[in-house]
Structures are given as C-alpha cells and as structure tokens.
Write a protein that binds this DNA or RNA. Structure first.
Length: 347
DNA sequence: AGGATTTGACCTTA
DNA sequence: TAAGGTCAAATCCT
C-alpha cells in the first residue's frame, strides 16, 4: 500500500469524519414516510463505509504517531520523565523530545468541567474523577484571582499515561473549580478495575446514599470536546457509533449510554469520583459532600479550531465520571488494539 | 526511604 | 515578548 503521511491521514480522517457527520445530520433530517426505510438503509451504509474507512485510517495514523511520538516516551529516560533541559548537551533530547511534548499537547483532546464544592468541607480542590493525579506545577494566571494547578496522571511514567488536567478556582465563585482535562488515560485498566470494585462494593451498600442523578445525553448545550487537530463533531459522533474500547460495553460505563435517563445510583456510579485531587491515592470523602444537587458539572467539549461546536449536554453529578469516558469517545480516532473491527484485512 | 508537593527556571506558543 | 505549560531540584509527608 502506498505510504500516507500522518498529516495526510489526519486530513483524510477529518474529511471523512465531516462527511460522516453530515450524513448523520442528513439522517436526522430524513422524514419521508414512503422511503424512510430505504433512505435509512442507504444512510446506514454510508455511515458504515465512513466508519470502516475511518477505523483503517485511524490505525494508520496512530501507527505513524507511535513511531515518532510515543516511542520516546516509554523508551527514553530523557523524555517526559525529565529530560536534561538546561545543559544543552543533548540537543536531540532537548529539541526533539521537548518539541514532541508540546506538539503532543496540541493534539490531545480537551474538555472542561466546572465543579462546585461546598465551603467548609476543608477541601483544597474539586472532587476528583477516579483517576490518580500528581500535581506537577502551579501558576498564577494573569487576571485570575487564583492560581492554576497542573496535574498529570500518576501513571505517566509507569504506564505512559499522558492525561493531564488543570484545576483553577473560579473568579466569580470560589466554590467552583474549573477543571480542564487534556488527553486521555491509557492507564484505563487499573481504573476500570477500581471502578468495578467500587461498583460492586457500592451495590452492597444501603440505598440510603442514593442521590439520583440523571445522566442525559441530548442535544442541549453543555459539552464541548476540544480536539485541536480535528473537527469536534467528527470526534464526538463517530465515537458513539463505534466505541473503540470494550470498556463502554462492560459494566457501569454502559449505564450512561444505554440507560442515560434512568435513575442512577449516584454513589454506586460515581464513588470513584470522590477522591481528593490533592492526593494521588484514593481518599474518598463523599461524606464531606453537600447535597448532590448542589453539585453540577458543566462539561464542555469544545474545539479550538472550529466554529462548529457540537453540543451534547448532561446534567450530571460532581465529576466527569461519565465523561472521563469521553476519553474513549474522543479517542475513537485513535488506534485501539481492542477495537472490535477487524482491520487486519487491510494490512 | 519512597512518593507527593512546592516552586523557580526553562520552554513553547500566540 | 508576555503568558501559559512543563520540568526538576528541594522539600515535605507518610
């Protein structure tokens, strides 16, 4: 097969994804009573073709990326784990790897949350999202009353997980923490395991702790995914079409998508969320929470390079629990070995 | 002792 | 060039 550059790949992916989205929109607007089935079938075929093409290209793109970006992360001690920056004795590690870091930063999906915590809880930060974070920096932001804290996944070095987040108190309301997530967790297995454990534990607990939260995925404003190098809509909707990881089809994650409007046991579903962000271990403090109704999350999935913003909204609880799974949604354009589609025939 | 946090310096981006 | 993001040594914590 002719070699296609990663950039070209991404362009193709972008175009295909846009086409797919347009087909989706067309599908939604199709209401002819007569040929509804025929049209629907046709659209489904179109979407299927897009999906297949995208999955192939995704694999190709990711294979191209892993050679240039991912490899140094895991193989070089001078990469993210801490490269000698000031001595300049290793121009490659400095110029190449550092550049890779910032290039990588650009292409990582981003999304925002606003998390409200009640005063008097003694919390130093917002509720966490079930992941283990390590704080690696803090900056005073111009015009902001509160500094911004930088967190990255604790498993960055052990598992090469590139997920990061930024936490900053809101100027308007100090009880609100604005959380900006970047990148997805590749340490998913551990988290999933923990989620399942929590899930099982919580199921055994009394239902007194139920704080029903409706997870609604609709076309209301609220969620924006920021995928700087890709069209946002292209990211969101394909992912719904073919979730790239088995996670969503296994266990509690599924609840959010298959039974979004049903009553959802909050603690059962979100208990991993109540972890202090200031600590990397799981310090649950759900007891310090105020009424769950006081908590809200505004998930903003947004694009930095497109005026087009697809909005999928949710009223949800405190954390990004359901939407840390937006990781996988935004990852749909990334290679996942467990992706069910058999792409071997293409190679 | 090992891991997490703090904080000033360095680097990239706009 | 300023602002934001990251690194890494120093320090703190368990």
């Amino acid at each position: 097969m002719e070699k296609i550059g990663t950039l070209e790949c991404k362009t193709i992916i972008s175009e295909l994804t846009q086409g797919k989205e347009l087909a989706n929109q067309l599908k939604n607007h199709l209401h002819p009573e007569k040929s509804r089935e025929a049209c629907g079938s046709l659209v489904e075929k179109i979407l299927s073709s897009y999906e297949n093409a995208l999955s192939v290209l995704n694999c190709m793109a990711m294979l191209g990326e892993t050679a240039s970006v991912s490899a140094p992360i895991s193989e070089s001690p001078n990469s993210l784990a801490g490269s000698p920056r000031s001595d300049g004795s290793n121009p490659f590690s400095k110029d190449q790897n550092q550049t890779d870091v910032f290039k990588k930063r650009k292409i990582l999906p981003k999304w925002n949350e606003e998390v409200r915590v009640c005063s008097g809880t003694g919390l130093e930060g917002p509720l966490d999202d079930g992941y283990n974070w390590r704080k690696y920096g803090q900056k005073d932001i111009l015009g902001a009353s509160f500094p911004r804290a930088y967190y990255r996944c604790t498993h960055r070095h052990t598992q090469g997980c590139l997920a990061t987040k930024q936490v900053q108190k809101s100027d308007e309301d100090p009880s609100i923490f604005e959380v900006n997530y970047r990148g997805r967790h590749t340490c998913i297995q551990e988290r999933l395991k923990q989620n399942k454990e929590d899930y099982n534990v919580q199921k055994e607990e009394d239902s007194n702790h139920r704080h029903a939260e409706e997870i609604v995925i609709s076309n209301e404003p609220g969620i924006k995914v920021e995928t700087p190098d890709l069209n946002p809509a292209e990211e969101i909707f394909p992912s719904f079409s073919f979730p790239s990881t088995p996670i969503v089809s296994d266990g509690l994650e599924t609840k959010f998508f298959l039974e979004p409007a049903k009553e959802s046991n909050f603690t059962e579903t979100y208990s991993p969320a109540f972890i202090s962000p200031a600590t990397s271990e799981c310090n649950y403090f759900s007891e310090s929470l105020c009424q769950m109704n006081d908590f809200w999350v505004d998930h903003n999935l947004q694009s930095s390079e497109s005026d087009f913003t697809n909005i999928i909204s949710t009223t949800t609880s405190v954390t990004n629990s359901p939407f840390r799974d937006w990781d996988f949604t935004t990852d749909s354009l990334e290679f996942d070995p467990s992706f069910p589609l058999d792409t071997s025939k293409y190679f």
